[in-house]
Every structure is written in C-alpha cells, then in structure tokens.
C-alpha cells in the first residue's frame, strides 16, 4: 500500500502556493510564466491523486487535456513575449503598465 492520498494533496497545495507566490512577486515575465506552469502541475497532481483515490480513470483523462492546453498556452504565451520583447527589449512585467488608470 502506498502513501495515503492526503499526503499528495498537501504536497500539491504546497506546490500551488509556491507557484502563486512566484507569480505575485517576480517581475520577469518568463519566471511568472514558469510559476504558472508550477500551479498547473500542482492541479495535475491533485487530479491524478483523486483518480487513484476514487479508482476512476476520468481524473487522468482530464490531466491529459490539461497537458495539451498547457502546451498550447506556452506556445502562444512565449510568442507574445517574443513580440513584446521585440518592441520593448525588456522582459519585465512591470514595464507593461500603459493601461494604468
């Protein structure tokens, strides 16, 4: 018998929190992006955990789709970063604040 599911859940909560922290505090867009991936991974981990706990393949199916969407998201996001960088030659999120009220 393996480790109980609740342990995994705690771990993924920790991972999610760290990702959120990175997203809030870092200024480099790329690192913010990576933090986002960490959060996605945390959610994936919970899905797989629940899939095991409930004995149902559905959770894993959902993870599969999350992976696909994450891949697409990274591609487009990095494309946007490239486009921004070409104009601003900076990868700092705080420089993009022309929408300030």
């Amino acid at each position: 018998m393996t480790v109980p599911g609740s342990w995994y859940l705690v771990l993924s909560a920790l991972l999610f929190s760290l990702g959120a922290l990175g997203f809030f505090t870092r200024r480099n867009i790329l690192i913010m992006f990576m933090s986002l991936e960490l959060m996605l991974n945390a959610v994936n981990l919970t899905f797989v955990t629940f899939s095991r706990m409930l004995g149902d393949i559905g959770g894993q199916t959902l993870v599969f789709f999350v992976l696909v969407v994450a891949a697409a998201e990274v591609v487009v996001g990095l494309g946007i970063i490239m486009a921004i960088f070409r104009r601003r030659s900076s990868a700092t999120a705080d420089d993009l604040s022309i929408f300030r009220g």
């Binding site: 771990l11 797989v48 894993q60």
Partner: peptide
C-alpha cells in the same frame, strides 16, 4: 509521483512534453 500513483502514461507525457518540450 505520477508513476507512484499508477499513471504511467501521464508520467511519460509529463517528461516528454513538459521537461522535453516546454
């Protein structure tokens, strides 16, 4: 951890797509 929880396919995909590509 995926492998540990009997999600072998996802573990493979995780390595290939995330670590390998992203």
């Amino acid at each position: 951890l995926f492998i540990e929880q009997d999600a072998q396919f996802l573990a493979a995909v995780q390595v290939i797509v995330y670590a390998g590509a992203i």
